[in-house]
């Protein structure tokens, strides 16, 4: 087919290539239309961020509202919440990264060293389980575990003669709860990638190492880890790209006013301002601000990935 098209003059070649592919375009069309309506039309709506829209007007009228320029952005950046939200968002993300990133790797290495294949399978299956449970359930389980009113952990503390701790209402403990429950939910699932990468390592390397008299620990350090370094770096770079996503759903379900100081992130603020208080314009502006920064971060992550000589996202 390709040969045939080469014979045609340039313009005609293009046209015929296009014509030949019309059925494929038809297959793409529904998806494309969907993207335009559900992903690009809302982008048109970010114009609200530069207006002052009244929440109870019909949307058509909102679009006609006069522009106020960057007023909402200025208000946000000058507001007290800007600092707090940025700080919380980044800190929670970084904490997640610091603890949530190495643990699955370690767990994967440990799983890899389990001798009994069946036992390993069982442990894996159990550890994947929480991934399939919604955040609503996990948040419910967390509240049950940590409540001061008969919660398991506080009962243990009390039995040990310690004072009970109100984990969910205490600024000193709230983030630990967030991070631990986050790890609990995704630990097992996040090992899958590593385990898959490990199976991809050339077994001859191991055999050679055994011949050289390398112990298991050294094999893990010198063969397994370098063997999956690629995937580790990629994952790390992209979790840095997603730094502004600090876990909206989880925080939404667990936080309360006493811990706003350490738990309020951009997304929860956008939700409260927009959906609850109905400050559509301001909320859109804050959301847009976040999207823009997130985009820069992802692009940067991709550039970094390429700098490291790895394949980027695009």
């Amino acid at each position: 087919m390709a040969e045939k098209s080469l014979l045609l003059p340039k313009k005609g070649r293009k046209w015929s290539a296009f014509k030949r592919h019309i059925p494929y375009y038809l297959l793409i069309l529904p998806g494309l239309i969907w993207f335009i309506i559900f992903r690009y039309l809302p982008m048109y709506g970010v114009s609200f961020a530069f207006k002052d829209v009244a929440p109870f007007e019909p949307v058509q009228d909102m679009l006609k509202a006069p522009s106020v320029g960057f007023r909402h952005f200025k208000t946000f950046i000058n507001s007290y919440y800007f600092k707090i939200l940025m700080k919380n968002t980044l800190e929670i993300s970084l904490l997640r990264l610091a603890f949530g990133f190495p643990l699955p790797l370690i767990f994967a290495l440990m799983l890899n060293e389990l001798r009994n294949v069946r036992y390993k399978k069982v442990v894996q299956t159990i550890s994947y389980l929480p991934h399939f449970i919604s955040w609503v359930v996990v948040a419910g389980l967390v509240t049950m575990m940590v409540t001061t009113d008969g919660g398991v952990i506080n009962n243990i503390l009390k039995a040990m003669g310690r004072k009970e701790i109100y984990f969910l209402g205490d600024v000193r403990y709230f983030r630990s709860v967030l991070i631990i429950s986050g790890i609990w939910k995704e630990l097992g699932w996040n090992t899958i990638i590593y385990l898959a990468a490990i199976t991809g390592i050339d077994t001859q390397l191991y055999e050679a190492a055994i011949v050289d008299g390398c112990g298991r620990f050294r094999r893990a350090i010198h063969i397994t880890l370098p063997g999956i370094a690629n995937i580790i770096i990629i994952l790390l770079i992209f979790s840095i790209g997603g730094l502004l996503n600090a876990g909206f759903e989880q925080i939404m379900l667990l936080y309360s006013p006493p811990v706003y100081d350490v738990a309020d992130i951009i997304d929860t603020y956008v939700y409260r301002k927009g959906i609850i208080e109905m400050n559509y314009s301001f909320s859109t502006a804050v959301g847009l601000f976040k999207s823009a920064i997130a985009m820069v971060l992802i692009v940067l992550a991709n550039v970094t990935a390429k700098l490291f000589g790895r394949e980027g996202l695009w």
Partner: peptide, 9 residues
């Protein structure tokens, strides 16, 4: 990379 956000949707 980029989305319209909560309120526009």
């Amino acid at each position: 990379l980029f989305s319209g956000g909560l309120i526009p949707s």
